[in-house]
Design a protein around this nucleic acid. Sequence first.
DNA 1: TGTATTCAATACAGAACTGTATCCTACTGC
DNA 2: GCAGTAGGATACAGTTCTGTATTGAATACA
Lengths: 202, 202
Amino acid sequence: METPKRRRSATRARLLEGALEVFAERGFHGASVEDICDRAGFTRGAFYSNFASKDELVLALFQATTDRLLEQIAALLPDLANQPGTLLDAVLGLLDEAAPDQRQWHLISTEFTLHALRHPEAAAALNLQRAMFRDQLTRLVEEITRASGLQMSVPPQQFVRLVIAVHEGARAQSLLEPDLVPAGSLEHTFLPLVLDAVSSRT
Amino acid sequence: METPKRRRSATRARLLEGALEVFAERGFHGASVEDICDRAGFTRGAFYSNFASKDELVLALFQATTDRLLEQIAALLPDLANQPGTLLDAVLGLLDEAAPDQRQWHLISTEFTLHALRHPEAAAALNLQRAMFRDQLTRLVEEITRASGLQMSVPPQQFVRLVIAVHEGARAQSLLEPDLVPAGSLEHTFLPLVLDAVSSRT
DNA sequence: TGTATTCAATACAGAACTGTATCCTACTGC
DNA sequence: GCAGTAGGATACAGTTCTGTATTGAATACA
């Protein structure tokens, strides 16, 4: 059971993993196919046996990371919705825990975003993924507000968009100046104020 | 008076301008030296007569755009501080008007940021520029709060960091989904709430 | 007017990268 | 064991890019 077609998908996986690292280090254009293969421990023969081009790999990598992220979220959601702290703890917790390596994730997703801003077809895929992501967060927000008897004066989707904007903008600052901007500091100082301002007890 | 050393600096300027466009379109790695020269209407001879390498040009371009941005701000500040609307109008107005082409500016500055996250020496330069930029905004905030007799319960620098985070995060969303997220919408719906929450009349 | 200089164009050599075609090895099924 | 096959390595051809060396044209200066 260890080598019929699993071999193939295993090397595909290793190539994707290598690509993730190399892309994070040098960007899409900066990474050559050979760089990726070296990182994964293969030669280009393996690469072209599995992917038609670097573009195709980028697409596959996007799908893979996207799928993994959504899985992670699905796994985390139930716990967060029910158990302990406040709404923002849950939402921000989800944003943090969904991505194990903040730095790498930021580099890759920024790379994807830039790519999407330059290639409309990629933008469609990215927007779809982001919409699903926002939907999960929105669902979480709605559940918690309902459970705790809160009423929001703005659409939850809007609020989620804000949280994401703050999170992404703050993450950039934290990565650039880790000492001056501890991860999560901006979110935790300001978002509670917003939440307070837009929500009321029923 | 039209060709002693002005010629040289004029082609330098055209090369920088071309580089800005091409970098925005394809990114640093994606743009070849020849692409840049084509755009500027030169051949590579002109390029290597003015720059030692693409890296050096990137550095020069960063300095040039940085200087221009700070000049623009310096020009805008006096008007904004005194005349009409509210604090946030001034701050957000500055952020918008400082960059004529939002899309190009976002692409370029994101590209710079990625570059900085991968190259510490570039990070130092970028952080310095961003610090000066924040200082300008902070000064503006302080002037207006003082003039209008407001007191903020958080350090103005923190507030400015938040505004920048929201602005950059929101801009990414607006560029990805122009229809769903009109430019400035997130900023204008939520930042007033924050300002309200952190400021009080004296 | 003639000479020197400066700046960009051209020509060229070398390196890096891509993609393909072929070979080799290790499993598969019989 | 023994063909057949799949997957990855190797070798190769073609392209693209970079950087340098040389050339040519236009301007400054005498």
